[in-house]
């Protein structure tokens, strides 16, 4: 029994309007993506002149993708990107989950100040913090280390810190909204706090964790600036970094840019669709609970 199937309502004018609104908005969000795909297969000269036509006939080319594959070791670039983003995501949800739980359920002195600090840390633009961080990490010897994995760590650590506060705020909001009765009964059955967290909070807050994971992954993956600053060695460069590097000077080579966008977006879409399923799972759990 899902939540959705319980509601019964006849086909009405209001339903049609609802669908109409939703469809119009989704058109605005999907069309650009289609536009990008279309133009990635088009010769550059035709993009500005006729960007809304299909890439057929003399307009069609595979050159844009060919250039990308020629210039980039795609396999290792994807691997580096995924290593960084997955590591960041996992660390963030573990650390933020614990902290959010603590902030949602515990009362202690200085909590208000702590919360303000967390909100404030969301405000630090990365270009304001990157230089001190670079110097610090250099002293630690993890920037441009001979070991590529350690070099990747130099990006992972600041990205974790940068995403934590967002994750804590969202997760805390969700956990706070959960009814406390479940935890109470678990407590009466003799569970300790850690068990309550792993056995009750984690499963019930799954949709929220999935949401946070998606955003963390996305931001880490698309965070060009940090990657640009820390990843110098050829073996450590990520897909986002490499594609932006070779497009940055292409100026108006829109065809190649579009192809780059596609190549960068593909893994993100796959991960999103995977986690999307997870959200649905989380929802069913929510329904059973309700």
């Amino acid at each position: 029994m899902t939540a959705l199937s319980k509601r019964k309502s006849p086909v009405s004018v209001s339903k049609i309007i609802v669908y109409l609104v939703l469809i119009v908005w989704s058109l605005t969000t999907i069309y650009p993506f289609i536009w990008v795909i279309m133009n990635s297969f088009k010769k550059n000269a035709y993009i500005q002149q006729s960007s809304f036509t299909l890439p057929v006939g003399k307009r069609f080319t595979m050159q844009n993708f060919q250039t990308a594959f020629e210039r980039i070791d795609i396999g290792s670039a994807y691997l580096n990107s995924l290593l960084i983003s997955i590591a960041v995501t996992i660390l963030v949800i573990i650390l933020a989950g614990l902290s959010a739980f603590a902030l949602a359920r515990y009362q202690f002195r200085g909590k208000k100040i702590l919360e303000s600090l967390i909100v404030a840390s969301m405000m630090f633009p990365v270009f304001a913090t990157i230089i001190p961080v670079f110097r610090m990490e250099y002293r630690w010897g993890i920037v441009n280390n001979d070991n590529n994995l350690i070099s990747l760590l130099s990006v992972i650590l600041p990205q974790v810190a940068g995403n934590l506060s967002f994750a804590i705020i969202v997760l805390r909001g969700y956990i706070q909204g959960l009814p406390i009765e479940l935890e109470e009964s678990a407590f009466l059955e003799g569970c300790n706090v850690v068990q309550i967290f792993t056995k009750i909070i984690l499963p019930v807050a799954k949709p929220s964790f999935a949401t946070v994971s998606i955003f963390t992954f996305l931001w880490s993956y698309n965070d060009l600036f940090t990657q640009m600053f820390f990843l110098d060695r050829p073996g450590t460069r990520t897909i986002t970094l490499l594609l932006s590097q070779i497009t940055s000077q292409a100026g108006t080579n829109y065809g190649f840019m579009n192809a780059s966008v596609i190549l960068v977006v593909i893994p993100v879409l796959i991960i999103y669709i995977l986690l999307q399923k997870n959200i649905i799972k989380g929802m069913t759990i929510g329904a059973v609970k309700g």
Binding site: I131, F134, R135, V143, N144, M228, F229, D232, Q245, Q249
Partner: peptide
Amino acid sequence: IRDSSGTGNEDWKVKVMNSFEVGS
């Protein structure tokens, strides 16, 4: 050669100067 070449823009200049400052 361990090559760390970039695109010669402002960000790149800052990074190069920074590397001298921290000894890298």
